[in-house]
Design a protein around this nucleic acid. Structure first.
Lengths: 125, 125
DNA sequence: CCTTGACCTGAAGTTAAGTTTAGCCTTTAT
DNA sequence: ATAAAGGCTAAACTTAACTTCAGGTCAAGG
């Protein structure tokens, strides 16, 4: 089954302009077209886009996602590199989680003071 | 005790240009200066900057951090609003954590397949 | 005295990730 | 047959958060 850009846009909640942008940037090098140039997304394309979103949402730049795609295109000789890239990104995500935890702690601390008294005026920020 | 911009830059690992930028954007309305215009950071200023970093690192836009500061300046009548703002942001952070967890799950799944066989070639991305 | 290093400003430049615009071509429903 | 809906492109525009630049002031050391 193949899907129009509008369908994919609704299913993944990505603006059409973003889908075209990703294609333009080389993230979808295998995307098929009709004879007249209309994009035809396959289930495989959609799965890939889901991974793209996951990587993007966790802070991987488009450029790096593209590198990953290029490695995929290059074939099975690059599988070690691709795994390494994902492991790196995983470490990155774990780092982000730590950071969020530390920040949450700080905010909870501020909120605690806030609830006690009307602290948090200008002297203490 | 008061500190130079260079000192604060090193202590908080923020470029000097960023510290000046935050000041320019109205994040440091109480920052003192020497007669000749050199910035003098107090411990209180540094604590505030630490909170700024925490909010910024967790995705709060500068504009909103400024709003928070303006509420602080306005006085104790705004304490409910400030608390609300922090609660909102806390919810935001919890949302980010969930997202990171979901993403991590997906990446772990991909890595698992990766370790099994040389999957993740172009058919499945 | 004068040079060096740290500070200042306003303005322009940068980067990522889209979005918008303008103009043009199909396909579909009336 | 014609108008609406949806697709396309290239190119310009946008936004946030900085950074860089050009040019100027000031305090301390040799």
């Amino acid at each position: 089954m193949e899907y129009t850009i509008k369908h994919v846009s609704e299913r993944l909640r990505l603006p059409i302009s973003t889908l075209r942008y990703y294609d333009r940037e080389g993230l979808m090098p295998l995307l098929k077209r009709t004879e007249t140039g209309t994009r035809k997304y396959s289930e495989t394309d959609i799965s890939w886009l889901e991974l793209v979103c996951c990587l993007k949402n966790t802070g991987m730049p488009i450029e790096e996602i593209k590198e990953f795609m290029v490695l995929c295109l290059t074939g099975s000789t690059t599988s070690e590199q691709r795994k390494e890239l994902l492991e790196q990104h995983k470490a990155n995500i774990l780092g982000q989680m730590e950071m969020l935890n530390r920040s949450l702690e700080m905010i909870n601390y501020k909120l605690k003071n806030y609830n006690k008294i009307g602290i948090f005026h200008i002297d203490t920020y």
